[in-house]
Design a protein around this nucleic acid. Structure first.
Lengths: 165, 165
DNA sequence: CTTGTATAGTACGAAATCGCACTATATAAT
DNA sequence: ATTATATAGTGCGATTTCGTACTATACAAG
């Protein structure tokens, strides 16, 4: 029976606890700024398509955001319904599809970014960049560890880190 | 008008991005260990009731976890349905209720903690405590900033930090 | 070429999340 | 006491999330 790992376990647990609440709060904050039925997930996918490149497959996107592919299907359906993306065939794989941004999708992302930057600017007065800059590499590493750790069934076809400019 | 904060904005955004994905991954990991219909939220609430003290009101719990009170109602209903908590009147306020752990609830939490500690032990080999220890105070501070920042309507009846042993 | 197996995406259903509106109680103002 | 306002909790409905099972295509083995 384990006897001496109370501290580490407690700390790791506390870490996930804080991370969970911060994710919760930031999600709620950003979501309150986005128009009607648009979620953070919608915005994030648009953002990813612009920052990385469009013409991604749904599965690539699901991997990039670490959600089940069924969830991504749903998110993409919402984006398509609103005319922000178009779904085309994948010439290299008949089972697959490619997601393309529409001009409307690009315009919306630009607009939404403006709405969010208001909040981010306000927050950046309190959460200064020099405070979070050192955290980022640590978090990235932890994210990668968690990512590799999960379900060995899925070969973890990793993707661009979903951020990084 | 702001002109030079492009870098901070990007970094803050990247920060929330990482935090969101880590929350996503850790939630999925823990949830996969918990029995059938039990979510991380269920476990967290039980945990909170033990670590802090039971006899909390639903609203206190909602504040502690930063979720809307309607969400907490739902979570508590699930816990009650499974016999893990009991809901009693609040002698100090007729509008309110108090949530009490049942022996079964305490037992289940103990058991579930064992299941999770397996994962945490495995992770702690890669995510060593000395790596995350310095992150914790920073994250806590950011959580508090975000918390104070939100909806000024709600007077932010703050609560015990929902963790801390 | 046929067969077996792996993969991409989706349909469907169950559960979680959460905003809105409502009831009941509390508190303050007069 | 009466009235007005604020607060705790819930019912309800819309949406999101995601596991299971399915279809269609790819690829490998023979």
């Amino acid at each position: 029976m384990p006897e001496d790992d109370a501290a580490p376990v407690g700390e790791i647990f506390a870490f996930f606890n804080e991370v969970g609440i911060i994710a919760q709060l930031s999600r709620a904050l950003f979501e309150s700024r986005l128009p009607d039925g648009i979620t953070v997930q919608h915005f994030s996918v648009l953002n990813h398509l612009i920052r990385v490149a469009d013409g991604r497959t749904p599965l690539e996107l699901a991997n990039a955001f670490q959600v089940p592919k069924t969830s991504m299907t749903h998110t993409l359906a919402g984006l398509e319904k609103r005319g922000f993306v178009e779904v085309g065939p994948n010439p290299e794989d008949g089972r697959s599809k490619l997601i393309w941004l529409t001009p409307s999708g690009r315009a919306f992302r630009q607009e939404a970014q403006g709405l969010l930057s208001e909040d981010i600017n306000r927050l950046s007065e309190k959460i200064t960049a020099d405070r979070i800059a050192p955290l980022l590499p640590e978090l990235t590493q932890i994210r990668q560890i968690l990512d590799k750790d999960r379900d060995p069934k899925k070969p973890s076809r990793r993707e661009q880190p979903a951020h990084l400019r």
